[in-house]
Design a protein around this nucleic acid. Structure first.
Lengths: 142, 142
DNA sequence: CTGCTTACTCAAGCTGCTTGCCTATATATT
DNA sequence: AATATATAGGCAAGCAGCTTGAGTAAGCAG
């Protein structure tokens, strides 16, 4: 069993588990991608360009995703305080609630792993992964 | 920096690096997905249904991917030796060569990580990931 | 040999992204 | 100040890679 396969599978399982937890908490109209948007938005908001870079997609795609989240009531667009070209995307109350639910779901998902490995090894693994892959999802700046 | 983000980023980086290595070795008409097909095909071949399960997609999608690989000369369909309904997908010479290139690329990609973590820690991490995520890519059977 | 299941494929449709183009604002150059 | 260039964003069209739906051929259980 190769490292590559395990790594990819582990990442997929974790993302899916967290997503399931979010859905189970009542946010059924979201995809995992939306969670990565939320994490970039907390706590001060971000521009569409920043979201695009964070996700590793074009600005147009990020704009579409934001459209979708606006329509569903999770975020809203505000004029940017210092740059009139840009618009600041911020979480609504609903968006904040969903973010909290996602954090709970993440803790819950990781409990399973902690049971298997034990906390020290899990933390060590996290530290090693951080060293290997600095920068957040999805596309590292290289 | 969260475990989830690092894990996903690390997996993405590794897959991308291996893919780049494969492309650099002259196989420019392939996507990462094709690599996962090859790994399932080695060494004895597999049916479309088995490939579909391995990739976590429908049989129709797997069939399309196989079509593509046949057109590009990496695999071929043979009658299944024991089940006349099924067809065995096997690597061509070109497919075998590409698989070797992918293995080289994987080793090369992991060397970077070994330089960062050291071999013992990298091996330990692999073992822990295997414990967390048994079963190959992409969709674990749950 | 009848009924059900499994392996596979063809066709159509959809989702989430891309590329191409455009406007508005900011920033650098002269 | 005037002009040129770069940046933030959005509209529209296109497309890749998947899905669902429907159908054929072969195995299998009674």
């Amino acid at each position: 069993m190769s490292l590559t396969a395990s790594l990819l599978t582990a990442a997929t399982v974790l993302v899916d588990d967290i997503h399931s937890g979010v859905v189970a908490r009542g946010f059924t109209d979201l995809r995992p991608t939306h969670g990565f948007v939320f994490s970039r938005l907390s706590p001060t908001g971000a521009t569409v360009t920043e979201i695009a870079e964070h996700l590793g997609v074009t600005r147009q795609a990020a704009s579409q995703i934001v459209d979708e989240l606006v329509a569903k009531g999770y975020v809203e667009r505000r004029p940017h305080p210092v740059d009139a070209r840009a618009r600041l995307v911020v979480l609504t109350t609903r968006g904040v609630r969903c973010t909290r639910a996602a954090e709970e779901a993440a803790v819950e998902a990781l409990e399973t792993w902690e049971d298997i490995l034990g906390e020290p090894r899990l933390l060590a693994m996290r530290d090693q992964l951080v060293r290997l892959a600095p920068g957040g999802p999805l596309r590292p700046t290289r």
